[in-house]
């Protein structure tokens, strides 16, 4: 029972395969289902260094296999998620993490998309305000009640300034 195996070899599929190989299939037994789940979660989120853009779960590289063995052993020994991640980061650096840590140099990475969204909404609000000035709007249809509602709710108060450029 586990989450889907994601990774990176689609490189290949979207045209230009850098040498992606079908993933490694390895039967492993863990004492508990939680450990099994943790193991698979870890090998999907950790990057194989040799292949550059595949996670450990998908790579056939010998080093990836060694690291899977190492992680399986640690998980079986009762080590938790943080310990395994710390073990690998200490040896290979943050590069192995497909989930980049939140630090000052990644604030922009994590916040960026939402900053863009806020900027987009801000620009949207400005445009809507400017475009919705009542004075210039010709009566579109006789549904005056609805129109009045819309005006009350959404229109900008100033009718003089917000004209389109």
């Amino acid at each position: 029972m586990r989450r889907p195996r994601r990774g990176a070899a689609l490189a290949a599929v979207a045209l230009f395969w850098a040498g992606a190989l079908p993933g490694a299939i390895e039967p492993r037994d863990f004492p508990t289902a939680e450990q099994d789940a943790l193991y698979h979660e870890l090998i999907e989120e950790l990057r194989c260094l040799v292949c550059q853009n595949q996670n450990l779960a998908e790579s056939n590289a010998p080093l990836a296999k060694d690291l899977r063995d190492e992680i399986a052993a640690m998980v079986t020994a009762g080590k938790g998620r943080e310990e395994v991640v710390a073990f690998l980061v200490a040896r290979y650096g943050d590069f192995v993490l497909y989930r980049p840590p939140l630090r000052p140099d990644t604030w922009l990475l994590w916040a960026g998309p939402f900053v863009l969204l806020v900027a987009g909404i801000g620009a949207l609000a400005l445009v809507l305000r400017r475009r919705s000035t009542a004075a210039g709007a010709p009566a579109p249809d006789p549904g005056s009640l609805e129109r009045a509602r819309a005006l009350l709710r959404g229109s900008a108060p100033d009718t003089t300034e917000g004209g389109p450029r």
Partner: peptide, 13 residues
């Protein structure tokens, strides 16, 4: 032989 020390040293290539 096993590459265990290699892992400790962060060897990848």
């Amino acid at each position: 032989l096993e590459g265990r020390v290699g892992i400790d040293w962060g060897v990848y290539g």
